[in-house]
Design a protein around this nucleic acid. Structure first.
Lengths: 120, 120
DNA sequence: CAAACATATGATTGATTGTTCATATGTTAG
DNA sequence: CTAACATATGAACAATCAATCATATGTTTG
């Protein structure tokens, strides 16, 4: 099934060259792949996931989130910074307090899709 | 717009209590959220993303991937282990060589969704 | 059986990262 | 203007992690 006439020795000298060449051509730019990994990295922390999930339901201020998750205001603020940098969350200022909400529907979709995978 | 009759003082004493209570009830189990973060963490590394993207196109053996990405066989094997543990990739043994492919369509969907977000 | 080969694994290490503490910025009330 | 407050930020430290090196497992060929 995996016989393309390629040689079957490895050690970086002999791989399935045809396949590798084909795949190489189809690969996106390194930069794009790096950015993609960075995006997923933002989702890859339970504190940040919790924050995002909380914002599924309602717009929340920093203190709300801190109380909700039992974390320091500082810790939450640091993580919101990361989420904001990844354009997953957007702030709305109202006097002293800043309310955060999900940036767009990609966030919802991605998390929902992830949940599906988790739940088999 | 954010007036639910909650008090406007913070410092962990006064938050928007109604909202926080509501959100708390809607939050999934901690364990589930932890697992979700773990899933995204697996996507959150450029080497692993590259491996997954390569497998978009074709089933590949460990050496193919190593050559394709300019990495050590060992490095690739270690990462495949992580991907396999996250059920994102599945192995098929054929003699000495092991061919890897994407485990299911969730992987494709998630990566595609991520790409959409990257590309604005 | 032994040698060659493909892959997997354990230990180590340099780099990354999340939290904490202290402090700065910016806003509102008196 | 000053005090109280909400949030943001910088430095520091502990924990996590990906690549490397050396080696082990398991398969095929002669």
């Amino acid at each position: 099934m995996a016989e393309n006439g390629d040689i079957e020795r490895c050690g970086f000298l002999c791989v399935h060259e045809d396949t590798v060449r084909l795949v190489t051509e189809q690969m996106p730019d390194d930069e794009k792949l790096y950015d993609l990994a960075e995006l997923f990295k933002v989702f890859g922390d339970s504190t940040r996931i919790k924050i995002l999930y909380a914002l599924f339901e309602a717009e929340l201020c920093v203190c709300d989130i801190a109380q909700l998750l039992g974390l320091t205001q500082s810790a939450v603020s640091h993580q919101l910074r990361v989420l904001k940098a990844g354009r997953l969350v957007k702030p709305r200022k109202e006097g002293k307090t800043v309310f955060y909400s999900l940036a767009d529907d990609h966030v919802r979709t991605l998390i929902a899709q992830g949940m599906e995978h988790i739940e088999e």
